[in-house]
């Protein structure tokens, strides 16, 4: 990989959720003299989704539900949506789907897979609200092998008029042989009104659970809820302890500074107190 390619990959990887197209437009303007720039961007996008743990939401033509692109649902050269039972190709540059075809139920699908699909749908509808136009939600599960199932969920909020975007991604793998659920939850929030503020947080999950759909979903719910509650506590502590230790709202005197010639008196007062 050339130096330019690796910088492009790093920039795209650093892009806030939902702003990948904006970053691509910037890169095209910045590097408009560089040959094959589009190819390099395309390669980076594809590799982050196919080789790494990145997830993207995509809309299939005429579909009522949104689909996921990730390494977990790559099937040959295409991607698979198990809820729509469709195979599709992806144009990474503009994130569009093409060559969509029907694909009947995977023969390998286990009984656990089928009951998990039902439980997951119910759980998502209870905790991932979708009652406004700023939201995009996609979730799916994939039979990786006879004993392994992947579960992925992405919920994004785009609110450009209030200069804020956010994404929640949950990704798990359950192995019915070892009975271990392993995964990662990550949250990325970007605020950008006359500034650039970013919250990036994640939690890793690893726990044993019986090969029962309801048990697995209960565990996921417990992990996600405890993460959210822990985050609330962390925010409170950062605000009340860390933030306060940086700059006071007012001096100890509770009055604004008395500027001017007499400002040196503060120092005299301090010296007297210390003496």
């Amino acid at each position: 990989m050339s130096e330019i390619d690796s910088i492009i990959a790093e920039f795209l990887n650093d892009a806030p959720a939902g702003e990948t197209r904006d970053v691509i437009n910037d890169l095209k303007l910045i590097l408009d003299q560089t040959p094959d720039i589009t190819k390099s961007i395309k390669r980076s996008l594809e590799s982050s989704l196919v080789d790494q743990d990145k997830f993207e939401i995509i809309s299939l033509p005429d579909a009522k539900k949104l689909s996921i692109i990730s390494k977990y649902n790559k099937k040959g050269t295409k991607f698979y949506d198990s809820r729509l039972k469709k195979l599709f190709n992806v144009q990474f540059l503009d994130n569009s789907a093409l060559d969509v075809e029907d694909e009947e139920d995977d023969e390998e699908s286990t009984a656990l897979f089928k009951s998990l699909a039902t439980s997951l749908e119910k759980y998502v509808s209870e905790h991932y609200p979708l009652n406004n136009s700023q939201k995009l939600l996609a979730f799916d599960l994939f039979q990786l092998s006879a004993t392994e199932i992947a579960i992925a969920l992405i919920n994004t909020k785009r609110n450009a008029s209030n200069f804020i975007n956010g994404t929640w991604v949950s990704a798990y793998k359950y192995n019915s042989e070892t009975g271990v659920l392993k995964g990662n939850i990550s949250i990325d929030v970007h605020y950008f009104e006359d500034g650039n503020v970013r919250l990036k947080t994640s939690k890793s999950v690893e726990s044993s659970v019986a090969a029962e759909a309801s048990e697995i979903i209960t565990l996921i719910k417990k992990e996600e809820e405890s993460y959210e509650l822990a985050l609330n506590k962390k925010f409170l502590k950062l605000n009340e302890v860390d933030f306060k230790s940086l700059r006071r709202p007012l001096p100890v005197t509770r009055a604004k500074v008395n500027w001017g010639k007499a400002i040196g008196n503060y120092r005299l007062g301090k010296d007297v107190n210390q003496a």
């Binding site: 209870e126 905790h127 956010g166 605020y191 503020v197 985050l231 950062l238």
Partner: peptide, 20 residues
């Protein structure tokens, strides 16, 4: 911005209470 807005977005993405 740091402590209210970002946290509100997290609570919007996933609700601790059931949506119903």
């Amino acid at each position: 911005v740091y402590f209210s807005k970002t946290r509100d977005v997290v609570g919007d993405l996933r609700t601790i209470n059931k949506v119903s």
